[in-house]
Design a protein around this nucleic acid. Structure first.
Lengths: 203, 203
DNA sequence: TTGCCCATGTAATTTGTTACATGATTTA
DNA sequence: TAAATCATGTAACAAATTACATGGGCAA
């Protein structure tokens, strides 16, 4: 069986060096590098934790290290070892190459738009409402609501921090999107709480 | 390094048979079975494709088969082979056990609420706006908008289908949530399109 | 009567996480 | 001066996908 046929036979035509097809996470890491800084794996993790986190899950340290190796092998990034100055251990820092820039630009421009991946644990549990007491359902929703509000606030704070910096115009735009997204998520939880109330009244 | 410390040393205390800690996907599959039907892997995939899909990614066939084996080994589901009647090949069908019911109920009630996992490809690309022409950005957003509207419509259609069936009260509730969620997603894309327009006018 | 889709799985591979190892630096 | 924390990685493992194998019914 084909199972979600998404062909694309990775062909090795003639002698041309074949561009490897990278998963989205690689592009995310290369994207972080595309802003031009020379960064270590640790830096990248930290940065992705507070930027990508709003709309894209932040990969673990170990995966970032792995992706960096892959990107370097593909010629999309180069690295050098930084000698241990006072107060640091030696470490490897990465910088995007010209080919990397070309590749990530191409990816951002040409990749087909595909649906976001969502794994909404709270909704999964509410879908199984026949297994929970209404009280528990409310608890789940309230906690989710609080999470959403917390995220919204963070996005607001970050937007204010980046205000006016034209270099960060697009990241700022996605932060504004995040602000609205988490506001909506919060309101949707409230609406669902109301729906449950309603269901309880006239069964 | 501890890397996202989330301890929980899976201890094998004394002689008591230890409940295995299952990942969310297992619970999703067991949740499908918790409605009481006797179902094959294929059935489950189909059903999850049109129900869970709105708020939880639908696992592949092969993963569902794997989860079923695991659930059976854990004693949460039992299976039997159905002989090939006319027009069918022989197949294995699964049914939830009493222990499975207890376990999934316990999970739904007691598991800590954790944040949804989101991998929003379109936003990732817009975050990298410095790599795209505004025209391309608009294209991405419009396509995402169309996807969201399509999903919203499907949710609406499904809500209508399930109307009134009290057995499906909670699944229906989550469909209503999905309707609003995808409406919001669509509107957020529209708002972002406006923001980009704005950015273009006065740089 | 051949090609195609439904159906049921297993195998190989990739993606991603958690656990572990190591050293240096701050802080109690 | 011991413990917590920052920093940089590797190794082992788990989760999830794609590819492959197989057979039956149906439509051209």
């Amino acid at each position: 069986m084909a199972e979600e046929t998404a062909g694309e036979t990775a062909n090795e035509t003639a002698g041309e060096a074949q561009k490897p097809t990278l998963p989205a996470t690689s592009w995310a890491v290369l994207g972080l590098l595309s802003f031009g800084e020379e960064l270590s794996g640790y830096d990248l993790k930290k940065w992705s934790d507070w930027s990508l986190r709003f709309f894209y899950w932040s990969p673990s340290f170990s995966q970032i290290y792995g992706e960096l190796k892959r990107l370097e092998k593909a010629g999309y990034a180069s690295s050098r070892l930084v000698a241990p100055e006072s107060g640091t251990r030696d470490k490897r820092v990465y910088r995007i190459t010209d080919e990397g820039m070309t590749a990530v630009r191409e990816w951002a421009r040409e990749t087909p738009v595909d649906p976001p991946v969502l794994k909404h644990g709270p909704m999964l549990r509410l879908w199984l409402g026949h297994l929970l007491e209404p009280e528990k359902m409310r608890e789940v929703l309230v906690q989710h609501q609080e999470f959403a509000e917390k995220m919204r606030r963070r996005a607001v704070a970050d937007v204010e921090g980046a205000q006016g910096e034209t270099a960060w115009a697009y990241p700022t735009l996605t932060l504004k999107w995040a602000e609205r997204y988490y506001a909506s998520e919060r309101d949707l939880a409230a609406a669902m709480l109301a729906d449950i109330e309603e269901l309880g009244k006239r069964p």
